[in-house]
């Protein structure tokens, strides 16, 4: 029997961190694991690093009784303790982000709100770019950050037209970066960079514009913060605790609709309208998470 140690989402799929399996070689043990834990596990296995008694292993390596194989997916951070640390720092970051949005929304005038958004989008872009770098890509991080700043200024000055302009700018800045710096000329680096820049700039511009137009009278931003915050909290809980009938994605979607409706009731807004907004948010949250997962790990 060989001990297989599992980390991150492979551990979640298998429902255990440690399993004993039969096999003469690394490949045989892994195929026994595939047979036991199914297709989702098998696809996760493709991008995972395999360690045999603390050394990198290849499929043909022979294994014997009492050996230990560790399967470490790229997102786990390398070991059990690291994975645990990353989970906590992600929670803290999410909470800080939420408080930042609430605080800057309460502050009068658009300046604090804009500054908070830029900070949040910058942190997110740098984080997702770092994950791409982990996978050997070279995202145009500085170009993305430049695009975010340009988006804030252009949306503040020109409103809706500025938001449209900032989308054009975010594509142009990232592409132009490749003209100046030769190592950013690979399509596999430019494409995700443009995508990150588009999401970050339109996110910044869109929330700025919504606050300018719909706050403080119509509470669209407060309801956004409530719905998305609730959805993130529910998703964070469901990622850690397995609930019957509710996976993280449907939990996120339900929480977004619920948050939106509760927000509309609290601030006495049009409930029917905000049910639709909640449904839209639910869809965007689920799609966005899948998109993020593609960018971070190359898989949905």
């Amino acid at each position: 029997m060989v001990t297989l140690r599992l980390f991150a989402h492979l551990r979640e799929i298998a429902g255990t961190a440690r399993v004993e399996l039969e096999g003469e070689t690394v490949a045989e043990v892994l195929s026994a694991a595939r047979a036991r834990f199914g297709d989702e596990f098998a696809s996760g296995l493709q991008s995972a690093a395999i360690w045999h008694n603390g050394e990198t292993a290849s499929p043909a390596d022979a294994v014997k009784e009492g050996d230990e194989l560790a399967i470490i997916p790229p997102v786990s951070g390398g070991s059990g303790t690291m994975a645990q640390g990353m989970v906590d720092s992600a929670l803290v970051a999410g909470l800080v982000g939420l408080l930042l949005l609430i605080g800057t929304n309460l502050a009068p005038g658009p300046a604090w709100w804009a500054a908070g958004l830029v900070l949040l989008m910058a942190v997110w872009s740098v984080d997702i770019a770092a994950r791409l770098e982990d996978r050997g890509r070279e995202p145009v991080t500085l170009g993305i950050l430049t695009a975010i700043v340009v988006a804030v200024i252009s949306t503040h000055v020109y409103g809706g037209v500025g938001l449209g302009f900032s989308l054009y700018i975010s594509v142009a800045v990232v592409l132009a970066w490749g003209v100046v710096v030769s190592r950013y000329r690979q399509l596999t680096d430019v494409a995700p960079s443009v995508l990150i820049a588009l999401v970050a700039t339109s996110g910044t511009g869109s929330l700025m514009l919504t606050r300018t137009i719909y706050e403080p009278d119509q509470h669209a931003i407060s309801i956004f913060i409530l719905a998305v915050g609730l959805a993130a909290v529910v998703a964070a809980i469901l990622d850690r605790v397995r609930a019957p009938l509710l996976d993280p994605y449907s939990g996120t979607a339900l929480a977004a609709v619920l948050g939106s409706v509760v927000g509309a009731l609290i601030w006495e807004e049009d409930v029917v309208g905000f049910v639709l907004v909640g449904l839209g948010l639910a869809l965007f949250l689920v799609v966005g998470r899948s998109l993020g997962s593609i960018l971070r790990t190359g898989r949905v």
């Binding site: 339109s202 996110g203 119509q218 993130a232 309208g273 948010l281 998470r289 971070r296």
Partner: peptide
């Protein structure tokens, strides 16, 4: 920060969504 991905995407499309509905 995977949880933020969905939130960022939702943020990006929030203004178009709200302005279409209201």
């Amino acid at each position: 920060l995977g949880l933020l991905d969905g939130a960022m995407f939702a943020a990006a499309l929030y203004y178009p969504l709200v302005s279409v509905i209201f």
